[in-house]
């Protein structure tokens, strides 16, 4: 059993990265732009870090920095997922062929 927290975290990082490699290799080129903007929105996960930083009491500097981080990463998350949805809404197959 791994007791060391840091080592556990590195384990998790490596496994998640491997899963990422496997998943992304199977994405067709036509979806590369929406994939990138969706993945980009996921990298806005740093919002969780921003929330933890902004929510703690740590003086005015920390609060301002935290607020800034929350704003930037929220733009990243909300804008990223919404614009991806807008793009993917435009991808369609020829209707005649579906019938």
């Amino acid at each position: 059993m791994i007791e060391n927290t840091l080592l556990t975290q590195i384990f998790i990082f490596v496994l998640a990265a491997s899963a990422g490699f496997e998943l992304i290799t199977k994405v067709p080129p036509t979806l590369h732009t929406p994939l990138m903007s969706s993945a980009n929105a996921v990298s806005g996960i740093t919002l969780l870090g921003a929330i933890l930083v902004a929510g703690q009491l740590g003086g005015i500097t920390a609060t301002i920095l935290g607020l800034f981080a929350v704003i930037l990463s929220t733009i990243n998350v909300v804008g990223g997922f919404m614009v991806t949805d807008r793009m993917l809404g435009m991808f369609r197959k020829d209707r005649r062929k579906q019938e």
Binding site: L6, Q9, I12, G20, L23, S43, I45, T46
Partner: peptide, 26 residues
């Protein structure tokens, strides 16, 4: 984002950051 996860000890940041990092490399 994954680095921020290591700083805060937050597993969610590490996982999501690693997924995106891998996607970008591919």
């Amino acid at each position: 984002a994954a680095a921020a996860g290591f700083i805060l000890g937050n597993v969610m940041l590490i996982v999501a950051g690693a997924l995106v990092g891998a996607a970008g490399i591919i």
